[in-house]
């Protein structure tokens, strides 16, 4: 296998917590990301799912160096971005682009759509100045907007159209990797599908790799052939979509899937297994010892508090060779979380 486009190894991001005393000592660390490793092949999309506070958005920001990583490496196209200064990072920036969640606050309301999309082209001087507007119109057309509307302002557009503008801007520099942080969660249901389809078309057409960060498990399943599940700053399970959704091994993945209300589940007579977690996600400032999920886990035993389960390859059975990894002392598949028509007949 050729070298992956992005290889993240033991990435850590801690935010210091300061005391409120006279001398502002650091009294703790918010362990937003605590040693995660994953890789993305060229043109592949990896989904990153988890609940609020699990570190999925922080991961996206660290990868674009909006936050400096605390430790670990992130090799992109053979270059480790982690130690680079903001200046050294500059040549790599065009290859990694971000799509934001909120299409209202991520576009400057005083700039025309044309100048928003043209800004990356101008700062990078990737096309001659007299060709910039042609390229902008081309980009607007690619994302399904009327190219003649380049001189309108963001406020003239609906939420879905604004998200398209943001995508056109991200697309301008022909990135190799797009980091989409909840790209559709602010949109109406009927509009979400339009944007998802657009992103899929772009991915296929331009061979862009995606890190797709979302809390919506159904959308992630639809968009990403490979999915990583995060809990409190750790990846607890990673694998291809069939494995994650049909044979989840980690109790948290199982609980997460079990919690998703789904129309089709109602159709096939509801879930066979209903897992309800109690309580809330613990604070990332003082996460539980050992396995971070143990405080809410029905399988937890003494070892879970003492030893942190490593993310291990699951090598037996149907998951062998799919790169399926689980971090659990008691990992075992549960095939009855989602009542698929197939599993009904099986």
């Amino acid at each position: 296998m050729s070298e992956p486009l992005l290889e993240v190894t033991d990435l850590v991001k801690h935010f210091p917590v300061k005391s409120s005393g006279f001398v502002r000592r650091t009294i703790g660390q918010v362990q937003a990301i605590d040693g995660i490793s994953f890789s993305i092949e060229k043109g592949e999309s990896l989904g990153l799912v988890g609940e609020s506070g699990c570190g999925k958005s922080t991961t996206g920001r660290v990868l674009t160096k909006l936050y400096e990583p605390t430790s670990g490496s992130m090799k992109f196209d053979g270059v480790d971005l982690a130690p680079l200064s903001q200046k050294q990072m500059l040549p790599h920036r065009k290859d990694i682009q971000l799509i934001f969640q909120d299409p209202y606050s991520s576009l400057n309301p005083r700039h025309t759509v044309g100048s928003i999309v043209a800004t990356p082209l101008r700062t990078r001087q990737v096309v001659p100045e007299n060709k910039t507007m042609d390229r902008v119109k081309e980009l607007l057309e690619v994302v399904g907007l009327n190219p003649e509307h380049y001189n309108r302002y963001p406020s003239d557009f609906s939420g879905g159209q604004r998200q398209r503008i943001g995508i056109a801007r991200a697309l301008a520099l022909q990135p190799k990797l797009m980091i989409a942080d909840e790209p559709v969660s602010a949109l109406d249901v009927s509009i979400q599908a339009q944007v998802i389809n657009l992103l899929q078309d772009l991915q296929r057409e331009f061979g862009i790799a995606f890190l797709f960060i979302a809390h919506d498990l159904a959308i992630v399943r639809h968009f990403c052939p490979r999915i990583a599940v995060m809990y409190l700053g750790k990846i607890v399970e990673i694998g291809d979509r069939d494995t994650i959704y049909e044979r989840p091994h980690h109790p948290y993945t199982q609980a997460l899937l079990s919690a998703v209300p789904d129309v089709k589940q109602a159709e096939v007579g509801g879930r066979r297994d209903r897992i309800r977690l109690t309580g809330d996600v613990p604070s990332p400032i003082n996460p539980p010892s050992g396995c971070r999920f143990r405080t809410r886990c029905w399988k937890a035993q003494d070892i879970c508090a003492k030893e942190e389960p490593p993310l291990l390859q699951i090598g037996r059975g149907p998951s062998a060779g799919t790169g399926h990894q689980v971090a659990c002392h008691f990992a075992e598949p549960n095939t009855s979380i989602i009542a698929t028509p197939q599993s009904h007949s099986a």
Partner: peptide, 23 residues
């Protein structure tokens, strides 16, 4: 609405069928 939301069953590779336009 039903066909524009992805779900947890069925073929994930199938394209979504959005409702065109806006409310």
């Amino acid at each position: 609405l039903l066909s524009s939301v992805p779900d947890l069953v069925g073929d994930p590779r199938e394209r979504l069928h959005p409702i065109p336009g806006t409310p």
